[in-house]
């Protein structure tokens, strides 16, 4: 019964794949995701084995008694899945939501980091 209800709720929201940047830097991977209108409470990040799922609901402030002149966006649901490999240190994944952008930091495990090898001259 509850399942049915939740399904009904989600299906009314149009679903979008949020625009995403994936950047590799020396210490790890950074994922930036545009999630305008999503507050911290409406954002869900799930990590199951190798699957990372990010979902969020965007609700825009409603105004009473207004005429819509022109609309280009509305309430919606953002969903996106990623597969992460073994070189990511799962324990230390960090997520921050700021100004409508989610930043995920996936640090590389110690063994996968680039290391400088010192050469000893004799």
């Amino acid at each position: 019964m509850t399942q049915e209800v939740t399904k009904k709720e989600t299906s009314t929201l149009p679903r979008f794949a949020p625009n995403t940047d994936i950047i590799e830097r020396e210490n790890g991977f950074y994922i930036y995701m545009d999630l305008p209108g999503v507050s911290k409470d409406n954002l869900k990040i799930d990590l199951k084995e190798n699957e990372l799922q990010i979902s969020g609901k965007a609700f825009y402030p409603k105004r009473e008694n207004v005429n819509n002149i022109h609309l280009e966006f509305g309430d919606g649901e953002y969903v996106r899945n990623f597969t992460i490999s073994d070189i990511v240190d799962r324990q230390n994944i960090k997520a921050t939501l700021k100004k409508g952008v989610l930043e995920l930091f996936l640090p590389k495990a110690e063994k996968a980091r680039p290391r400088k090898i010192e050469i000893q001259a004799e």
């Binding site: 625009n19 995403t20 940047d21 994936i22 950047i23 590799e24 830097r25 545009d34």
Partner: peptide, 12 residues
């Protein structure tokens, strides 16, 4: 844009 090695860039 940010610095780094881009794997995917979709954000305008």
């Amino acid at each position: 844009a940010d610095n780094g090695n881009y794997y995917r860039q979709e954000r305008p």
